[in-house]
């Protein structure tokens, strides 16, 4: 039979896998809920179970492996979550005129900001395809 430490590690690893899978599934649907307590508890719980496994009765190579992954996974995703805040030092505001710029479009043609004049435009900044 598995030792207590192994079972704790296994439980923690399952918890971090389930929590993270649900998170990224919701993220891909742009449907992460405003209340994210369940996710935070999931990652924190995985971290605690992992640490409990590492110090628990019946440690062996399997429990160290499972507990280690669980602790690292839980702490890593919890840490990633805390880095979500973003800010720009001096962002463009309502009432500002857009700056003049040139950039390449997806056909590698040069686009000049003069083209923005004459028609209302919905102008969006994305992070990237990922």
């Amino acid at each position: 039979m598995f030792s207590t430490a192994t079972l704790l590690g296994l439980a923690g690893l399952l918890l971090v896998i389930v929590t993270t899978t649900v998170w990224f599934k919701r993220a891909s649907q742009v449907a992460i809920p405003d209340n994210r307590l369940a996710f935070l508890l999931g990652w924190a719980g995985a971290g605690v179970l992992g640490l409990a496994s590492l110090g628990g009765p019946g440690t062996n190579w399997l429990s160290y492996f499972l507990g280690g992954l669980s602790a690292i996974g839980g702490v890593f995703f919890l840490g990633l979550y805390t880095l979500r805040k973003q800010n720009a030092a001096n962002p463009i505001m309502v009432g500002d005129r857009v700056p003049m710029f040139e950039a390449l479009d997806d056909q590698a043609r040069t686009y000049n900001s003069d083209a923005l004049i004459g028609t209302p435009t919905l102008f969006k900044f994305f992070r990237g395809h990922w």
Binding site: V94, R97, G128
Partner: peptide
């Protein structure tokens, strides 16, 4: 990285509306 932002520009190129989040997990 860019802060994900949506701007509405009028025909003169002036920003008339802006939507931006302080949390990159939330989009317009």
């Amino acid at each position: 990285l860019p802060v994900p932002t949506t701007l509405m520009l009028d025909a003169e190129g002036v920003v008339r509306w802006k939507d931006q989040s302080a949390d990159y997990m939330q989009r317009s």
